[in-house]
Design a protein around this nucleic acid. Structure first.
Lengths: 189, 189
DNA sequence: TCGTTTGTTGATTGACCAGTCAATTAAAAT
DNA sequence: ATTTTAATTGACTGGTCAATCAACAAACGA
């Protein structure tokens, strides 16, 4: 069975399985065995390619972050006014790629992980810095206090994310987008 | 050493130790041994009084929730205008009793726990329901869409909570209060 | 005084899991 | 054709941890 060039394929499958299993279990303490099984390989192979569970978890986090960044850039590229830039960032945050149950669950757990894992904390800061910087930049021509508004909007987005996990009655993507847009409409002229 | 009437004292100490250890470790996977040690008893005693780790975790969650509810009621009692009611809710959310590192950390982990533990999920809904209801009630005379504004404010508060954990540069209580107050000022007449 | 209740723990058990390793297979390279 | 390299796994290990239990100590009640 050993076909060469499997490394990329297996790494990819394992990262996907990690995100999916975290979403399914809703918690970070999924086992390497579960993840490996979900990826269709042995747990030994997961260790072989990633070294440790933490490394695999970080790789999954990076994947989520990268996907989010890419989506944001795509939507930002289509926006030509500052206000449209804001909407692009919001749309990326709650887009179907990023605002899935598994991904949101992964986010929540990454927050927990970041409390003890320095590398996870660093990754989280990278995301928060980028989001805030994007927001601030778009807000600069639109309101007198872009920094404060950007911080508020960022917190609001994160709050809506975790609220989305609290079962039914939780905001769907459209409702979340409408909420953030309404806030932004209120503070921009 | 066996003095009678220890049950209440031990339970209290164990619940306190649980919150404190979750805060110290930043994660839910603290061991019964750690908690018991921090409370000055054996892990067997922790099991004796609480039956299981989950029960102890839930008791700790209830304690946090109760404390928050009590603080809210105290501050609401002192407020005599709708606008003052809003400020009271915000002040309770970020008051020194509730907005401590350990408590915020416990909150974050309770969110994770609520993904799998039905009782934790139920408790979380209780809190969210009360907060939203309090906010909506205070907002009714102040703005045309109290439900939507309450949902936004609730999400904003939770977002600021988890942002408070992301190390230095994170908002302190005063900044968080100012942020929410600024939002509320913007949407109330 | 003596049995009963309450408080308490050390030792143990049973399960689980991250990580390691030696062994196996098949493709690639020489 | 033979050596090397990549892919893959089953079996194992060392450690951890929740939960149990039997036993002991002190207060209390009769």
């Amino acid at each position: 069975m050993p076909r060469t060039g499997m490394m990329a394929i297996r790494k990819d499958a394992l990262v996907n399985a990690t995100i999916s299993e975290i979403g399914r279990a809703g918690t970070l303490d999924v086992t390497m065995g579960q993840i490996a099984k979900s990826a269709g390989v042995s747990s030994a192979l997961a260790h072989h390619y990633f070294g440790s569970k933490d490394d695999l978890l970080l790789a999954a986090m990076r994947r989520v972050l990268t996907q989010f960044g890419a989506e944001t850039q795509v939507l930002l590229g289509k926006a030509d006014t500052p206000r449209a830039r804001l909407s692009a960032i919001v749309a990326a945050s709650f887009g179907p790629q990023n605002f899935r149950d598994e991904v949101v669950s992964a986010w929540l757990n990454f927050y927990v992980m970041a409390q003890t894992q320095p590398q996870a904390a660093r990754l989280l800061r990278v995301y928060q810095g980028r989001l805030k910087s994007n927001l601030t930049h778009a807000l600069r021509p639109l309101c007198p206090d872009p920094t404060q508004v950007a911080a508020t909007a960022a917190a609001l987005i994160d709050g809506l994310y975790i609220h989305a996990l609290s079962g039914p009655g939780a905001p769907d993507a459209d409702a979340a987008i409408a909420t953030v847009e309404a806030y932004l409409d209120g503070v921009t002229q």
